[in-house]
Design a protein around this nucleic acid. Structure first.
Length: 488
RNA sequence: GGCCCCAUCGUCUAAUCCGGUUAGGACACGAGCCUUUCAAGCUCGCGAUACGGGUUCAAAUCCCGUUGGGGUCACCA
């Protein structure tokens, strides 16, 4: 049995709930559940300008929708709270004090103007960008005076530019970065809130996080985190950087080139099961498997392995999601699918439980998304069918034959008390042969007359739902339509 | 541009760590079967080791280089 992993995701609530959050969340969740550890949600809302409550709520809602249950979080009691960084300011303050006292950090009074001038100069002279360390040399007592005088300042990490910082990435092995390329990172902003780097390290330590599974974009800042762990004298967690989801042009997935909001997928009728399944297949492969790649959340939990993650950045291509979604819809039982349709589609005659139950056998295997239900079923309840000459074209029959076919179908179906697929398809077929018409064309004419479409679920079963009388009325309307058209 | 990461079918990937497979699967695509249409299902097909060196009896696999792609260089995360 593996040792239990305590893992976390740390989204910042600054926009729509992102597929990247779900992706990283899923991998963390799988590791926690598989090892019998804990999965924690921590809200990184230290950016006071951009963080919003709505965004945080949307993240919680999305995780719940996906079924990524967390053991500790802003709305789930836990022993290491609070789980919102904006509520942990005092912790960061005391920890940053420790760093100043042990010489690992220092106050910096440089203004934004000086910093931007410095960067402009560095760019011009083609030097490595980074803080030039001017405020390092301010004596402690002078610094204290200026802080006491309410002069704005930040706290920076004092990076020894000699040597290199080395760490192990679980998937990539040793990663080594020269210290001269590591900036004197701001740890605490002038508003008194910590930056990601400080808050992240302090919280991961305090919350006893064992594995840091996060996106690849964090690799280059990991040395700063390592330096912080060392400055505090803390043990390192396992670092494991996941590949980044990509647009089709291979760039980091973005809103401009892909729908990235989880809300979007929910609203478009995707199932959380399919989304999770799809995300899991991005970079992870369950086994040396054969056959279809459909996995339940529970199966994923069981087969997951940190060692079976591939490193190439996967293109977030929805084609497979569509297939998975259709597949997952087909697996749902009647009542489950009914509930999901009712949750996704505005209430109306088409979403009444009885009606859904009557049409599901006809449309379930044709749905790729929950929203498809509406298009697939609209003709059943339509008060009238809009017909055009064009719609009858696929019957490949001249107008006179169309009328003959429909009149014969009308006569046949008028004789039966109610519809029976086996019996009536035989009778209609005989009718077609009797008229000397191709069976396919005959049925297509009838299909278009009754549904207005050339692609529908099985015809007679559909007419059963519509009702014999209503079906006959539609056939009659079609005959009238064709006759009036031919007179023109 | 500096630094860091990555590189197998159109896409997601297996085989890579511990060299030996006709380089496998899934999705998409094409064909056929089923069939009154569309789906679903079944069968078959198309299709890849970026390039160049090296090591070796043998390289997708190990090493080096090249090329390509990506990330990162904020008082954002």
């Amino acid at each position: 049995m593996p040792t239990p992993a305590r893992v976390r995701i740390a989204p910042s609530p600054t926009g729509d709930p992102h597929v990247g959050t779900a992706y990283t969340g899923l991998f963390n969740w799988m590791l926690a559940r598989q090892t019998g550890g804990q999965f924690i949600l921590r809200i990184e809302d230290t950016d006071r300008q951009r963080s919003t409550n709505e965004s945080e709520e949307a993240i919680l809602r999305s995780l719940r929708w996906l079924g990524l249950e967390y053991d500790e979080g802003p709305d789930v009691e836990g022993p290491y709270g609070p789980y919102r960084q904006s509520e942990r300011s005092e912790l960061y303050r005391t920890h940053v004090r420790t760093l100043i006292e042990n010489g690992s950090a220092y106050p910096c009074f440089c203004t934004a103007e000086r910093l931007s001038e410095m960067r402009a100069l560095q760019r011009k002279e083609k030097r490595d960008p980074g803080y030039d360390g001017q405020c390092r040399s301010i004596p402690a007592d002078e610094a204290q005076q200026r802080m006491d005088a309410n002069e704005p300042y930040v706290i920076r990490l004092k990076v020894d530019k000699q040597g290199a910082t080395v760490f192990q990435d679980h998937l990539r092995g040793e990663i080594r970065i020269e210290n001269r390329t590591i900036d004197d990172q701001v740890l605490m902003k002038s508003d008194g809130f910590p930056t990601y780097h400080l808050a992240n390290v302090v919280d991961d330590h305090l919350m006893k996080i064992t594995h840091v599974l996060r996106a690849e974009e964090w690799i280059t800042s990991t040395p700063k985190h390592v330096l912080l762990y060392q400055a505090f004298g803390w043990d390192l967690p396992v670092f494991c950087h996941l590949p980044l989801l990509r647009n089709s042009d291979k760039s980091k997935i973005s809103k401009r080139k892909n729908p990235t909001s989880l809300d979007h997928y929910r609203e478009k009728g995707y199932l959380p099961e399919a989304m999770l399944n799809f995300l899991a297949l991005m970079g992870f492969s369950p086994a040396e498997g054969e056959g279809e790649e459909v996995f339940t959340q529970d199966e994923l939990r069981q087969v997951f392995s940190l060692d079976r993650i591939s490193l190439g950045g996967p293109v977030f291509d929805l084609t497979k999601l569509d297939w998975l979604n259709g597949n997952w819809i087909r697996r749902l039982d009647r009542d489950d699918l009914t509930k999901r349709i009712q949750a996704a589609i505005p209430e109306g005659p088409a979403t009444e439980t009885g009606f859904i139950h009557s049409v599901l056998p006809l449309v379930q295997e044709r749905m790729k998304t929950i929203l498809d239900y509406a298009d697939l079923t609209d003709f059943f309840l339509a008060p009238s069918i809009h017909l055009t000459n064009e719609s009858f074209r696929r019957a490949k029959l001249p107008s006179a034959d169309l009328v003959r076919a429909l009149e014969r179908a009308h006569a046949i179906l008028s004789e039966v008390p109610d519809l029976d697929p086996d019996r009536d398809s035989g009778r209609l077929r005989e009718g077609a042969v009797d008229l000397g018409l191709k069976v396919g064309g005959f049925f297509m004419a009838l299909r278009v007359a009754v549904t207005g479409k050339s692609a529908t679920p099985p015809l007679i079963e559909s007419m059963q739902v519509i009702g014999r009388d209503q079906s006959l009325a539609r056939i009659q309307s079609a005959i009238d339509f064709l006759q009036s058209e031919s007179e023109l």
